[in-house]
């Protein structure tokens, strides 16, 4: 039979280890002694965009920041279960957290460029790793800024303060800063909630470009954004994983009533 539209969706149940970027096994989190995530099991496919949606406080940000152990910065944090990256539990005792975070980059809700030049912002992670060779830094800065679709706008003023950029440019700079470390996984925590709609679209387009080389996990409050940008979507509710499937089905024919209610705006 003739197929008019090409779609390639991996079956999430039958994901092989090569196709998996992050494997979450029975993962639970307690913050200040209250259960925030309850036995989450999921596999996040490699080089795809996975969106997490759900109400505020449903645990999606907590789950996201579990992937690079940023949630440990909170006081009173406890967990059980495993998060596997390349077949290795990142919560093992010997894990080098700083190194892990260079492989799993993260971008936050509000653009947070450092109060330095654009160039130094992009170099920040590299300098921390002790890389100082000027030529190499120049190359990486250019590539990262190009990949973040910012190069053309800032190439003439690399040494100006990053704080002079607009909100959307700052957020792209922050993405470029994460990309400079060539992360395998990029975690985006509501990356566009502080930006105007058009800038948001630019960032989304950028995210779409990124998936060629990077696995992207994005948390968003904006369901339409999740629908637009993601290949796969997770719906979380009160710490439980309710539904996880490819976005096409989730947003046209969700399997669970809770999901349907949430994405159609029927939730109480």
């Amino acid at each position: 039979m003739l197929k008019l539209f090409e779609t390639e969706t991996l079956s999430l149940d039958k994901l092989t280890d090569e196709q998996t970027a992050i494997k979450v096994k029975d993962f639970s989190v307690w913050l200040n002694n209250s259960l925030v995530l309850n036995k989450i099991n999921m596999r996040i496919p490699k080089n795809k965009i996975t969106a997490m949606i759900g109400q505020s406080g449903c645990g999606k940000s907590t789950l996201l920041s579990s992937f690079n152990r940023m949630n440990e910065l909170n006081q009173k944090y406890a967990f059980s279960g495993e998060v596997e990256l390349d077949g290795r539990d990142i919560y093992n005792k010997k894990e080098n957290v700083a190194k892990l975070r260079t492989k799993v980059g993260m971008v936050f809700q509000r653009p947070n460029p450092f109060p330095m030049s654009i160039y130094e912002n992009v170099c920040f992670g590299l300098r921390i790793q002790g890389k100082t060779e000027r030529r190499m830094l120049d190359d990486i800065v250019e590539t990262s800024l190009r990949n973040a679709a910012l190069w053309d706008e800032v190439k003439g003023r690399l040494f100006d303060s990053a704080l002079l950029l607009s909100g959307g440019q700052q957020q792209r700079l922050v993405i470029a800063r994460a990309l400079a470390l060539k992360p395998e996984i990029l975690l985006l925590d509501e990356p566009t909630s502080a930006l105007d709609p058009l800038t948001t679209l630019h960032i989304e387009e950028l995210i779409n470009q990124l998936k060629k080389t990077t696995t992207v996990v994005i948390v968003t409050h904006n369901m339409q954004q999740a629908a637009r940008v993601s290949d796969y979507s997770v719906f979380l509710h009160q710490g439980e994983l309710i539904e996880y499937s490819d976005s096409d089905s989730l947003f046209t024919m969700p399997a669970k009533k809770q999901t349907e209610d949430y994405i159609t705006g029927r939730y109480g």
Partner: peptide, 26 residues
Amino acid sequence: PEGLRAGSYALGATKAETIWKTVLPF
């Protein structure tokens, strides 16, 4: 801002590096 610290940690900086390179200048 808390975001500045988080940004530094997310790039693989340790606590000392974060304080020295981002918090203190700010």
